[in-house]
Design a protein around this nucleic acid. Structure first.
Length: 624
DNA sequence: TGTATGACTTGCTTGTAGACTA
DNA sequence: TAGTCTACAAGCAAGTCATACA
């Protein structure tokens, strides 16, 4: 009898378990209701930061209006002038400068320049010979004759206390109370409201940089021969104001005057001054979201689209020119081939000794290329190795067509490493030729065209409609990355890169553990619920909840893994430059609309303001 | 035709606001 | 809620290109 009951009990249990599993299987095959958006901001790749800045009140659609056709940029311009750097505040008594181990009180002018150096002690710049030499030379110009005779060796100068003082000040700023921080914020906001906007042709427009650059030490990039030189303080007497005659002219600070007030509506700047390092002019101009900048940007992409229509004809022409009898035409044709194929910059000539030694296509020298008739199984390989804009290294090995290779061999004949590769060519000659091929065509249009067309092609290739949003965004970033690589947009890996990757990996590991625990939990719940299924439906609801937990954690894990892949691939590549300057925003807008991706996932608030014209006008079928 | 200059765009670095996390 | 981290925006250097002038 006992055996019979035991057998019956077992059969009953198996039956119950089967029923439960059957029911469970049925339910899992149904879609899970979309979960309520608890923390939407977490899903925003742009950071989803709730900035306090208000959306601009002026939602003017300038792109729906006529443009000026007479070369003028505006009819009316009124602004308040620039904001000057605050005056120098002398160091407190206890912060001393030491020379040769002894404290020494410096005159105000010498002390100010010394603080510029003291602030930078942590920076590699202060270890560079050129920087130190230039700084010391300019610093001595600010010294009194007594200081000059005493301070003769920079190596005997000790700026340590200054450095510590500024570090402590920065620390104190961080430690300020919420209230104090709020007060500073409000004051800044007041300044922005007063000086950060202008009125241009009946519209309030944001100014890009309304503050005059403060004095400091010049931070030239690469091996810049002028790094460390003193950037002097700009006073109202150095500043030219540009505004319309009939506007309320900006007032200079009390007791000062402007260098000049002019009314030139053929230019877009509001104020300008000449800096003392290179003697170049610096400007105060409008924000990228302004009409004046937006129109120009739009126009730039339209020129690139016009190039698309005739690029094949131009390519056929330069290929033909590789065979020309004239050396200058062959050089022009080979250079254009590189600009087109490799997205090289034009390469203007530079004054020797005034800037870092960098080159672009037309200014390439013999020493920047190597020719290999055969390399790694490929024929006619050219190796490029040179410093481009901002002293960023361009290194690339590419197979070229035989004719290009033979031409290059010809160009190199009887030349020294420091000679120009294209000695019969410069950017002016090249651009004049391009102008003849297409109205408005210059060397840089090829960069814009190739960048935008690459993005469009890559998006088509990489996007899968079945993918979820994070996977689609990864595809977008990969397409963007292809462009950044083409344009050689590099960045120094962030100092915190390794750590942040480690943090992300820790999160992934934790999430994996969490997932496996949740799965285990679900499995045992299935067993338990099976036993009591007929008695308590409440257990079934608990089972459902566990199932949802597993799904949620799986999704979170996937997101983290996508994030890690994206970050790793982006380690040394800067996406921002191409996104802001080379990619027709209408391509991205169309892609978002086509695949149902919120535009906020691709462009942050500032970018959306800059590209408002594109967001408004492009539909899902836009083709570059 | 070459050079200088002015105007504007492009491009990298850095400080920090504010989101995230424990 | 305090401390940490990171995306953003500011900052400014460094390009391109048109034009004026010799």
């Amino acid at each position: 009898m006992k055996q019979f009951f035991a057998f019956f009990h077992s059969i009953l249990l198996i039956l119950l378990l089967f029923l439960t599993l059957f029911h469970f299987a049925l339910r899992t095959s149904q879609d899970i209701k979309p979960k309520k958006k608890l923390k939407e901001k977490k899903e925003d790749p742009a950071g989803g930061k709730k900035r306090s800045k208000k959306e601009p009140e002026d939602k003017w659609k300038w792109w729906e209006e006529e443009r000026y056709t007479d070369g003028s940029k505006w009819r009316f311009l009124e602004h308040k002038g620039p904001v000057f750097a605050p005056p120098y505040e002398p160091l407190p008594e206890h912060v001393r400068f030491y020379y040769d181990g002894k404290p020494m009180k410096l005159s105000a002018d010498a002390e100010e320049v010394a603080t510029f150096f003291g602030k930078m002690l942590d920076h590699e710049y202060t270890t560079k010979d050129i920087f130190r030499k230039n700084f010391f030379k300019d610093w001595r110009k600010e010294m009194t004759s007594e200081e000059k005779s005493k301070i003769t060796d920079l190596n005997k100068c000790n700026f340590g206390e200054m450095h510590e003082y500024f570090k402590a000040q920065s620390e104190a700023r961080k430690q300020m109370t919420k209230n104090d921080k709020q007060k500073i914020k409000e004051e800044n906001e007041r300044i922005v409201q007063e000086y950060g906007y202008c009125v241009m042709d009946n519209h309030k427009e944001r100014i890009g940089n309304f503050r005059i650059e403060p004095p400091g030490l010049f931070r030239g990039r690469g091996d810049h021969p002028k790094m460390g030189m003193l950037k002097r303080r700009i006073r109202p007497e150095d500043v030219i104001i540009n505004c319309s005659k009939d506007s309320k002219h900006p007032k200079p600070p009390p007791g000062t005057r402007w260098k000049e007030v002019r009314h030139d509506n053929k230019v877009t700047w509001l104020a300008s001054w000449t800096e003392n390092i290179q003697g170049s002019i610096k400007y105060i101009m409008l924000n990228p979201s302004s009409r004046i900048k937006g129109e120009k940007d739009w126009q730039k992409y339209e020129t690139a689209r016009r190039l698309k229509k005739c690029v094949e004809r131009i390519r056929a022409q330069y290929r033909d020119d590789w065979k020309s009898k004239e050396m200058r035409i062959r050089q022009r044709a080979v250079a254009l081939y590189f600009i087109d194929k490799l997205a090289l910059r034009a390469g203007n000539e530079k004054e020797e000794g005034e800037t870092a030694d960098t080159v672009g296509c037309c200014s390439l020298r013999v020493e920047h290329i190597k020719l290999y008739p055969e390399l790694d199984g490929q024929d006619y390989v050219v190796e490029f190795d040179f410093l481009g804009k901002d002293s960023i290294r361009y290194y690339n090995k590419i197979p070229v067509e035989k004719r290009v290779f033979k031409n290059l061999q010809l160009f190199l004949e009887n030349k020294q490493p420091e000679d120009d590769l294209f000695d019969r060519l410069n950017t002016s000659i090249l651009n004049k030729h391009l102008q003849e091929l297409m109205d408005g065509l210059t060397a840089k249009v090829f960069r814009t065209y190739n960048a935008s067309i690459t993005l469009q092609q890559q998006l088509k290739e990489l996007t899968t409609s079945e993918d979820n949003v994070p996977a689609k965004i990864l595809s977008y970033n990969r397409a963007n990355r292809a462009v950044a690589i083409l344009c050689n947009h590099q960045r120094a890996p962030p100092k915190t890169f390794e750590k942040s990757m480690q943090n992300l990996q820790t999160k992934i590991d934790a999430k994996k553990q969490q997932l496996s625990a949740a799965k285990k939990d679900l499995k045992s719940a299935v067993m338990e619920t099976g036993l009591v299924y007929l008695m308590h439906s409440v257990f079934f609801r608990a089972l459902e909840a566990k199932k949802k937990t597993v799904a949620r954690i799986s999704e979170q894990l996937m997101k983290l893994e996508v994030q890690a892949t994206d970050r790793e691939e982006n380690k040394q590549i800067a996406l921002g430059t191409s996104k802001l300057n080379y990619l027709d925003p209408r391509i991205s807008v169309a892609w978002c609309k086509k695949f149902g991706i919120p535009i906020e996932k691709i462009y942050n608030k500032t970018q959306r303001e800059k590209f408002a014209w594109a967001i408004d006008m492009a539909d899902k079928d836009f083709e570059f």
